[in-house]
Amino acid sequence: MGLRGEAAIAGQALADAGLVLQDLDGLAVNGAHFNEASAFVPAVVAEYLGIKVSFAEVVDLGGTSAVAMGYGAHSNSYGAPEAEFDIPYGHLGQNTGYAMIAQQYAHRYGYDPAAMARIAVDQRSNAQANPQALFHGHPLTVDDVLASKMVADPLRLLEIVMPVAGGAAFIVAASDIDRNCLQRSVTIRGCGEQLDFKSPSYARDMTVTQIAAAARRAFAMSGLNPADMHMAQIYDCYTITVLLSLEDAGFCAKGEGMAFLREHDLTWRGDFPLNTHGGQLSFGQSGTAGGMSQLIEAVAQIRGCAGERQLRKHDTAFVSGTGGVMSEQGALVLTGA
């Protein structure tokens, strides 16, 4: 989208927070390459926006960048050390890596395609209450998902996120900052981050993701438990990502994810509100800003300004981020002031 678009989004975030450009004193941008710039990225962005900061960094955690600040997968060209042993065998892109994790899961714990499809379907229901979602106005059934093209067994087309153009921004401030904002404050009560491997081929156990350690740390810091959460905004590049994250974050036990999906209504009206904006599967994945949609939805819900899809209980939220093929994981626990 280019720096002009980024500036417009930064302006929206500032107006929403009741702050002005001059209030900013730090900058975190995502991706080693940022639009037009490939080096000195923070300086390029600071100059363009017109801000003077005493802290700046580039976060390169793919889909978990939003959580780490507050993409990609297998290397598609030679250069990275592991790529030399991916590319000659066709291990490219993301679909097949996630598919092989799902196959291993199926072998170990069983697999219910209809239960997995419910993730996509319930999130699509949520998107019907979100005019900003790409698939607003396009409801989906379990049969639609099961009839969609098999891309990499067992993952079907409608279980795979759609890349779109877009961007996102958020502002993190000290709790005592002087600002002109009447909105309810949202507090980061806990955070966690965990990385281990780049390719799940080298994971000790590819069915146990790093979300487990990240979420454990975030919950411990917050003093809250999974059962205390009023909503879960879970990174959803694929349905299998959601299943593994639900288990590893502690919303259900390992291997019981399929039963959990069958037993709960995941819509905003339901007993386990999940990705209430539609998730990236139905909202759209705008590059590395895709994971930010989960964070922004959590903030909107906690503040009580989520419109038609507003939850009745909306004081606590779990947010997760995933980069690579379950490679770079982050978790946040948010609460309303």
């Binding site: 066709g90 097949t96 092989m100 196959q103 291993q104 891309v151 990499a152 067994d153």
Partner: peptide, 15 residues
């Protein structure tokens, strides 16, 4: 065999 998948859309035209 640790895991496998069938890529119904080839990951690269050469495959």
């Amino acid at each position: 065999l640790c895991s496998y998948t069938i890529a119904r859309i080839p990951t690269l035209a050469g495959f």
